[in-house]
Design a binder for these strands. Structure first.
Lengths: 254, 254
DNA sequence: CGCTATTTGTGCGTATGTATC
DNA sequence: CGATACATACGCACAAATAGC
């Protein structure tokens, strides 16, 4: 295989995605994996342009997008530097707790209550919580930050009868675990987790401060009490470029 | 009954992503979630164009992309119909086995060996397998199908000394579990799994028959033998629109 | 059979965005 | 910065296939 000056065939034309956006997406990923940028310094624009087989203007457009995102910082006359931080590892285990899981990896953990309502349970929610369809459930919409950046957007449902006042308590405690405790539930376990990935929707783009085309990791989780009774059904969207999910085996379950 | 419906502001212009691609991505997702298409039949093109606030041509371009992907099927004079199948659930548990996990959900499970080599272990691989950096390891590149569609592309590393002949045996057995057994390893356990998501790269786009902009779920896994000694380090890319990962809790571990 | 309504397929002109030089 | 080429998106018109009356 002769590789004299083989351009990397990773950037596709006529794909419906502008070259600058493909390059921006790729650079964001490689920066996140530590493959691009030595000691926080990006290669010069002409080198990047040659590598991707595009004009320097196109690379500049991609860099401008990443500067806008906060991934890069360009300094005239000096170069372009990486601003981004590492990806946080979110552990999924039997006792999955948001702040415990990220504690030690980041500072400034916080969860904000964006919205809440009492509504009749949909088929999915009713099935997950073992309630009758239409039974009243509390829905909490929350946004979580770590290191000052939004990392996840969650929608959780709770039995309105058993956990009356959940929204008010959560807005004060800012913690599901603490809210459960106030409501008399000392402990709960993760029953199951389903993971998918998709493009972020408009609302999540805004809340999670993502750019169009960004990816969210979606977890659908059911938590149960010590008797195995479901207490929470939730859908959480994680910014895929800021979070990775970690599933420990039986031997390293903490 | 042309009722002036409110345009959904989900399609963004000047975002660097073509309208037809945004529409295709959104339709693919809604079809997967059952939100679009009643009884396998899509709304007519003019209705979709009105809903997304674009020209009918633009919707047609999006539909053409999904037809190319195998998600839709268009019949002149009749309509456009959904071809897609449900998303398969891939369980991640202590004894994670590819074919066992998908058995019962799909037919025609098969794994092809695309490439293999013996190479010196990189830092990551050496660390994961508890070997010295540069120690010889076997690398297997595999592609797995279910229901006649490619679902995952994996890269696995094995200690070349302990598992000599792995590539030849795998190309015959087409199963990691069976290959391990032939090499004297009767059982192995999943030590840890890390899940991320990103845009598919050019090679995966081709192998997994995806369209540009498609998403892959990436799992980084370590398997260990009964003594806790690592036997396999692997990176698997799953087509995110065909697979979801399922992590059972302690009570439903199978 | 023809007629009509519906729906997908095609052609063409034009304006704008993207990328190169 | 302008000139050029191509992709994208729109608007309109019409052809082709299907289905129901």
């Amino acid at each position: 295989m002769a590789q004299a000056k083989k351009k990397e065939a990773v950037i596709e034309r006529r794909s419906g995605v502008a070259l600058w956006r493909q390059i921006a997406d790729r650079m964001r990923r490689e920066i996140g994996e530590g493959l691009l940028g030595e000691e926080g310094r990006m290669p010069p624009e002409v080198a990047l342009a040659e590598r991707f087989g595009v004009n320097r203007h196109t690379v500049r457009t991609a860099i401008a997008a990443l500067v806008q995102e906060g991934v890069l910082r360009a300094e005239q006359g000096r170069g372009t530097f990486i601003e981004g931080r590492r990806r946080l590892a979110y552990p999924i285990r039997s006792r999955t707790r948001f702040s415990e899981g990220l504690a030690g990896q980041s500072r400034g953990l916080a969860a904000d209550l964006l919205d809440h309502a009492v509504e009749p349970a949909s088929l999915d929610v009713a099935k997950a919580l073992c309630l009758s369809p239409g039974a009243p459930v509390i829905r909490l919409e929350t946004l979580s930050h770590a290191d000052g950046r939004p990392v996840s957007r969650a929608r959780g449902w709770f039995d309105a009868e058993r956990f009356a006042g959940m929204a008010e308590i959560f807005s004060r405690t800012r913690s599901i675990t603490a809210s459960f405790r106030e409501l008399g539930l000392a402990d709960y376990l993760r029953h199951s987790t389903t993971v998918t990935a998709r493009h972020a929707e408009a609302g999540d783009l805004k809340d999670l401060q993502l750019s169009p085309g960004a990816i969210v990791l979606v977890t659908i989780a059911i938590n149960v009490d010590a008797q195995g009774q479901p207490v929470q059904y939730s859908e959480t969207r994680f910014a895929a470029d800021r979070i990775e999910l970690h599933i420990p085996g039986a031997d390293e379950t903490g």
